[in-house]
Design a protein around this nucleic acid. Structure first.
Lengths: 233, 233
DNA sequence: ATTGACATACATACGCGCCTGTATGTAAAT
DNA sequence: ATTTACATACAGGCGCGTATGTATGTCAAT
């Protein structure tokens, strides 16, 4: 009755990860007990403690299983494209959104990461991991936009870092809002148009760049003082 | 030593809310115990249970204190503007971001809402509340964009709902990413340019709108079949 | 203006369930 | 025979909800 071969052990490990994904999604990470997860996996807590040190390590393993492939994909998109990096960025961005719209696995994990998990001090590893992941992704996209500017696909006035921040925020915001309430709108339908809208905005960036100019006027007279609305108390 | 007048009671209520905000932020909502909150507030759990039914109600009250004013502000922006609704939307959007960049109070609450709180089944009220809030906000913005299209501030080809989804996602994504790691970029500096980028994208929306056209050709020969990506399941 | 009765605004104490971590048992694989 | 891959058993703590205690504020009646 009990299974013991190496591959069977790996199978139960995967089963536990599946169960964790399910229970984390239903109850939230903090409120999920290892007993529930074991029950969902058809084993006991003993099996979980054999494969993982504690809940945090289980969570990490569960995330890795899904996030690592996605990150690898993004990296490949970043390194390969020398021809038309803008199109590559566009496709990669839309691809993530459409992939999310289709894959229930991705949906669950994104929902856990965005809405069922507390980035708190005790499990700081989780938070650091997310930050690092974001930061890396951010860097990749920024490099892409830099290439776009260098090769003339975007105006010189575009700030690559800023463009990357906007793109990341738009995409992560879309995913977070959609998984929170999937019936509020169709991610599949709006993904490409919205990304295109943002990219068109980048292409039409004006050439002002007024910031670095120093001392345009020595002393500005207080002509029309705007009504200050501070004091939120 | 003990305080009993009405206003003193209200004061301790506020103190408890402050403490809850602090502890929720530090430990996460699920991991925060009422004992910790009471200790931070300089009282006992008895006081908390006097003012609030349980942790969920305490959380709700804490959020209300900050969110309600913001929502009220948004509503005012939505109803008032008949002249140039696009400018009003732009200002309101940027205002929320800049206000967030300045107000530590808002920052903490946003960080709690986005990263320190599990939208799980047991406290479904929290999730529903967030969804309702988002939905209302979404509707307000959508109405604004609709007015923009009607008054010619945006092309007819702009889909107001889609535009609102994008705006909401961009803003919430920006806030979520920034509060997660405030030193990764300056929200105050990039807020206005990024919003403007998105709005420029909307203004330059092409006039395709191919969807509503019916039966252009009776039977389309499969000349070049695009890879269909429907099937959201 | 006192006084008593009642409500208010908490503090304290208790019981309970749940969950965690570990220690131990055990049968099959190697 | 030893290790693997779990299942079972045990001890402990923590946090929640509630019940109860209590000192003060409030207010009407006198």
């Amino acid at each position: 009755m009990v299974r013991r071969t190496r591959e069977e052990a790996l199978a139960t490990r995967e089963t536990i990860l599946d169960a964790a994904e399910q229970v984390f999604h239903d109850k939230g990470v903090a409120h999920a007990s290892l007993e529930e997860i074991a029950q969902a996996a058809g084993c006991t807590r003993g099996a979980i403690y054999w494969h993982f040190k504690d809940k945090a390590e289980l969570f990490d393993a569960m995330m890795d299983r899904v996030v690592l492939p996605v990150e690898a994909m993004l990296d490949r998109a970043g390194e390969a494209g020398v021809t038309d990096p803008l199109a590559i960025l566009r496709l990669a961005t839309i691809d993530i959104l459409e992939r999310t719209a289709k894959d229930p696995h991705l949906q669950r994990v994104f929902e856990i990461a965005y809405h069922k998990c507390e980035y708190t001090g005790d499990a700081a590893g989780v938070r650091d991991r997310h930050i690092a992941s974001q930061s890396e992704c951010q860097g990749t996209i920024e490099a892409g936009f830099r290439a776009c500017v260098a090769q003339g696909y975007l105006p010189k006035s575009v700030n690559p870092k800023e463009a990357a921040i906007g793109a990341m925020s738009l995409v992560s915001g879309l995913i977070a809002n959609w998984v929170l309430d999937p019936k509020s709108f169709s991610l599949a339908k709006h993904a490409a148009p919205l990304v295109d809208t943002y990219f068109r905005g980048l292409q039409s960036t004006p050439v002002v760049k007024a910031a670095p100019v120093m001392k345009v006027v020595k002393a500005t007279p207080p002509a029309k003082v705007l009504p200050s609305r501070r004091k939120t108390a």
